[in-house]
Design a protein around this nucleic acid. Structure first.
Length: 258
DNA sequence: AACAGGAGCAACCGCCCCCTA
DNA sequence: GTAGGGGGCGGTTGCTCCTGT
């Protein structure tokens, strides 16, 4: 706990650039014990010379459990294309429909594969989109995912935003804690897709937990912190942490315990 | 084998919103 | 009512790796 005694770094001392394994470990330990949020106090509590934003970004985009690595599947790409047509560059909104993918992942993918296409490659882009959508359609018959439902869902959310504000900001909980309507949308979106919604579990507190396997990586049955000590790649730890659970680390459970 | 260009991705930047004092 | 701080989000940058020549 020597690191916990670290002093607060001044702004001039903030470290930048790639994160080291030790930094990841410190940040993960902090989130494990304190939950997400209070990013500005990470440096004070852990001795990390990283500012709050950097810590949050590292956690959200790389360390948070349940993140999926690797290439997007055609289904995911199809969803991105459809949702981008609806929401535009609202990456975080799109990311909510692709569990395990971060807004950064989606943004990067879009920029790499579509945005960089440019005018001269517009035709190629359209062909690529058409190809993906075709694959999507084939995989999803007879159940097609209903983008209109998603759209109306988002519109409904917007309409109720004032209500949510009055109730102390509900933080998109309506998506993470699906109503009957959403439960209708979700499974059909990923018909034939082996690693997304069908693999999620609705927790007692209403949060969605991922059950993705990470290929041949070991299942997390030991203490999360110990996993880091054993140099196990952090984002491949397969334990579930719901939004509420993150606020109370004593609620964290492991899938082996389910 | 060496080099150039492109792809992919992690991380930073800056703006905006919301909450709180 | 408002100012300041924290956090979220979209845009951008830069590094690494891969592939083609």
């Amino acid at each position: 706990m020597e690191a916990m005694m670290g002093s607060l770094a001044t702004e001039k001392e903030w470290r930048k650039g790639p994160w080291t394994g030790e930094e990841d470990k410190l940040l993960s330990e902090y989130v494990c014990f304190n939950g997400e949020g209070r990013w500005s106090s990470v440096a004070q509590c852990t001795g990390l010379k990283r500012n709050g934003k950097s810590c949050r970004l590292r956690w959200v985009n790389y360390l948070r459990p349940g993140l999926k690595r690797g290439q997007l599947t055609p289904i995911e790409v199809g969803i991105i294309i459809e949702l981008h047509a609806i929401f535009g560059n609202k990456w975080s909104t799109i990311a909510k429909y692709l569990p395990g993918r971060t807004d950064n992942d989606i943004k990067n993918y879009w920029r790499t594969h579509f945005e960089k296409s440019g005018k001269s490659k517009h035709k190629k882009l359209e062909m690529q989109k058409a190809k993906v959508l075709k694959q999507l359609k084939q995989k999803q018959q007879p159940q097609e995912y209903d983008v209109k439902s998603i759209k109306s869902h988002e519109e409904t959310k917007n309409e109720t935003k004032s209500y949510e504000t009055e109730n102390n900001k509900q933080k998109e909980v309506d998506f993470m804690c699906p109503t009957m309507e959403h439960q209708y949308i979700v499974p059909s979106m990923h018909e034939g897709f082996s690693s997304t919604w069908p693999d999620t579990v609705l927790g007692d507190d209403g949060s969605w937990f991922s059950l993705w396997d990470f290929d041949d990586e070991p299942q997390c049955s030991a203490d999360y912190v110990n996993q880091f000590s054993e140099s196990v790649v952090p984002n491949q730890a397969t334990f579930g942490v719901g939004e509420d659970s993150m606020q109370n680390h004593d609620k964290i459970f492991y899938f082996d315990d389910i």
